[in-house]
């Protein structure tokens, strides 16, 4: 009965090895991430140009930001790009995952082929996309060469369509990641469930829509989470493919921030932009994180 149990206080004093091991990472997260965020917030309320200043101008930089035509255009572009990019990546990635899962034999090869884009830097692949989409060099020129002179595919230099070329190129990269995540989820589904559905006489498409996709809820939420963060920080694809052009037709917030931070020597305005982006991302991610937790609980 009087077994000497470790008192809660003693347990609290003893250093937990797991916590000790996590300490460097926790410090990094605290100092580097949170610290920089707070510093950006502080700078965004100053009148800094190329060097940080310690004065305080309230929300003046935010007023300037939202009066800036280029910033508004960037936000508009991102709002157009993000849903298209996420939806297309999820759809293409899911179809790929189902294909790879069905063709178990060639699965390893297919997986490698579709996962490679994710391993490559977009600065390199973006350049190849630029060549392909460039009407003077790429697909359009090739089709002309085959004798179809009327063929036009010049979205890259079209003010209204250039954003879709960004979607195409980044979906090609994002779909591989989605496929890998969903494939892991697909493999975890009990094969007997699919057999039972076949015996029940449920057509294959209906099995996928009514059983497989709901069972993959957690995987889909995880993939959407990663895609959303990728969309918000979209930068390298724009640099490699369009440089924000033609005109400002493919400007995005991350590029606006980088330009003002390093090119235009206006770190206060850039910091204001960065703060807005962080707040937007948090606002968008919160419901996704919540949905992901619910999906996890439902799958247990």
């Amino acid at each position: 009965m009087n077994k000497p149990a470790a008192s809660p206080a003693a347990a609290r004093r003893a250093p937990n090895p797991a916590h000790l091991a996590l300490l460097p990472m926790a410090l990094t997260a605290l100092v580097v991430y949170l610290g920089s965020m707070l510093w950006s917030l502080r700078i965004s309320m100053s009148s800094s140009r190329s060097l940080p200043m310690q004065d305080f101008v309230g929300l003046a930089q935010y007023q300037r930001l939202f009066a800036n035509e280029r910033w508004l255009h960037s936000l508009h572009n991102l709002a157009l790009y993000t849903p298209l990019f996420i939806a297309a990546s999820l759809v293409v990635g899911f179809l790929l995952a189902v294909l790879v899962d069905r063709q178990a034999r060639a699965g390893g090869l297919l997986r490698a082929v579709f996962l490679y884009p994710y391993a490559l830097s977009f600065i390199a692949t973006g350049l190849i996309w630029q060549w392909l989409l460039n009407p003077e060099l790429g697909i359009q020129q090739a089709v002309h060469g085959w004798g179809f002179a009327g063929f036009r595919f010049d979205w890259l230099v079209d003010q209204d369509r250039v954003i879709y070329t960004l979607v195409i190129a980044t979906v090609w990269q994002g779909a591989g990641l989605v496929m890998a995540i969903l494939l892991a989820g697909l493999r975890a589904i009990d094969a007997d469930i699919l057999r039972a559905a076949r015996l029940d006489g449920v057509p294959a498409w209906r099995i996928h829509v009514s059983i497989v996709i709901p069972m993959l809820g957690f995987s889909f939420a995880t993939a959407a989470l990663l895609l959303l963060t990728a969309a918000v920080k979209l930068y390298d694809a724009v640099i490699a493919m369009t440089q924000g052009g033609p005109g400002t037709a493919s400007e995005v917030p991350a590029k606006f921030i980088m330009d003002h931070l390093f090119g235009r020597a206006n770190i206060a305005l850039a910091s204001a932009g960065a703060t807005i982006m962080v707040l937007t991302a948090v606002a968008l991610l919160a419901p996704l994180l919540y949905a992901r937790r619910r999906a996890l609980r439902a799958s247990r």
């Binding site: 469930i193 039972a196 709901p214 069972m215």
Partner: peptide, 11 residues
Amino acid sequence: MVFQSYALYPN
């Protein structure tokens, strides 16, 4: 058919 793992549709 009845399976060992029950194979019910979990959702």
